[in-house]
């Protein structure tokens, strides 16, 4: 044991434990042939409503499942289960994001090979979840027409992280005086080549394009 001051090299990501678990998850998902999506938005942007409609439509041709993260309550899981899909709730007990070990523990007992798609609805939060890899194949960020077109500029790290940006609640665009061009401009400012799809779970607008994006991910 030495008492003279010295330096120790660590050079390790603070999230390396999560990253390792996420890699294990991704390997399991790949082996089972299931495509996994990590869904993110601010609270109230319509993740659950969109997911409800997604599970219903996709469920006509594929075997679908969902893990739903919330600080508390299993309301969302009960709501999504009505689509007939396999659904489980992850109550984080106050944690503002999902971590890989929470996903791992909530998959227990599920035969992953029995699913084509697994959706992980993250906790409503546009900051912390982006630091935590969950082993997903696609990262989807939702932004509602009611949120303000400059949201991507306020959360550049999140929109930069996304593989797909879904604009939601398109049916309310007129009432919200949503400026689609301005929204596209701010999304593209922080993430120039990202795919953007405008959707409405209520009217079905854009849902076909979203389904096609998912199917393309499956073919990858």
């Amino acid at each position: 044991m030495s008492n003279s001051p010295r330096m120790i090299d660590v050079r390790q990501s603070v999230l390396s434990k999560n990253d390792r678990l996420a890699q294990e998850l991704r390997a399991r998902f790949d082996a089972a042939g299931v495509r996994v999506l990590n869904l993110l938005s601010s609270p109230g942007a319509g993740k659950t409503r969109l997911l409800e409609e997604t599970l219903r439509r996709l469920g006509e041709r594929y075997r679908v499942a969902a893990l739903v993260g919330d600080l508390a309550t299993d309301n969302d899981a009960r709501r999504l289960a009505r689509s007939g899909a396999a659904v489980r709730q992850i109550e984080t007990g106050g944690l503002c994001h999902l971590e890989a070990d929470l996903v791992t523990s909530h998959l227990e007992g599920w035969d992953l090979a029995g699913f084509d798609f697994l959706f992980i609805e993250n906790v409503g939060n546009l900051v912390c979840p982006t630091g935590y890899d969950l082993g997903e194949h696609g990262r989807v960020v939702l932004m509602a027409v009611t949120e303000g077109e400059d949201k991507p500029l306020k959360y550049p790290g999140t929109f930069q992280w996304a593989n797909l940006v879904l604009i939601s609640k398109l049916d309310m665009a007129e009432a919200a005086e949503f400026d689609a061009a301005a929204a596209h401009e701010s999304i593209e400012s922080v993430h120039p080549d990202v795919t953007i799809i405008a959707t409405s779970a209520r009217t079905g607008a854009g849902m076909g394009e979203w389904m096609a994006w998912l199917e393309a991910l499956r073919a990858d």
């Binding site: 001051p5 330096m7 120790i8 660590v10 390790q12 990501s13 603070v14």
Partner: peptide
């Protein structure tokens, strides 16, 4: 350009110890 090279780091680089 969307090609991020740096900006997502959260790293413990080194420690000074006794």
């Amino acid at each position: 350009t969307g090609q991020l090279v740096q900006g997502r780091e959260l790293e413990l680089t080194s420690l000074e110890v006794e």
